[in-house]
């Protein structure tokens, strides 16, 4: 098996597995999937609304070792960043960090998509909350 040590580490000791209340207004949830392998990945961020900083991140992935490692690493990268910094995370950073082979690059793309989906969900929630306060 050609998994790198870093993939194996994240696969055997995944960081931040779990879930948060998706109805919490400070939580953004991203659910994405890769039909070519049947993977499904849920990634959540909890944002401090005053600072815009991601204070916690959780994930749960059903898929191959690289998909689990990619999402585990993504949650580690997210903590402490602002939501806008989070949006600039590229899948290539995950590829490099985990030394993913070409056939597994789509797993890192899935993790990037999950980050974007979670941040977008948070932003939509906070926008509708602002509108509600105004109205």
């Amino acid at each position: 098996m050609a998994y790198s040590n870093k993939v194996l580490d994240h696969y055997n000791n995944p960081r931040n597995v779990g879930s948060m209340d998706k109805n919490d207004p400070d939580v953004g949830t991203g659910m994405v999937g890769a039909p070519e392998c049947g993977d499904v990945m849920k990634l959540q961020v909890k944002v401090n609304p005053a600072t815009g900083i991601i204070e916690d991140a959780k994930f749960k992935t059903f898929g191959c070792g690289s998909a689990i490692a990619s999402s585990s690493l993504a949650t580690e990268m997210l903590k402490g960043r602002t939501v806008d910094e989070a949006l600039s995370i590229k899948n290539t950073e995950i590829v490099n960090e985990l030394a993913l082979p070409p056939v597994k690059i789509h797993c890192s793309v899935l993790a990037e998509d999950a980050i974007k989906a979670a941040i977008t969900d948070y932003k939509e929630k906070s926008a509708s909350r602002t509108n509600a306060t105004v109205a």
């Binding site: 659910m31 994405v32 999937g33 849920k42």
Partner: peptide
């Protein structure tokens, strides 16, 4: 082709359902 698809091609209800079944 199946290879070039991205997440947007998978309906969110399906992902929710599959996630719940997996859980």
């Amino acid at each position: 082709p199946i290879g070039e698809q991205r997440t947007k091609d998978v309906p969110p209800e399906l992902l929710e359902e599959v996630f719940e079944l997996n859980m």
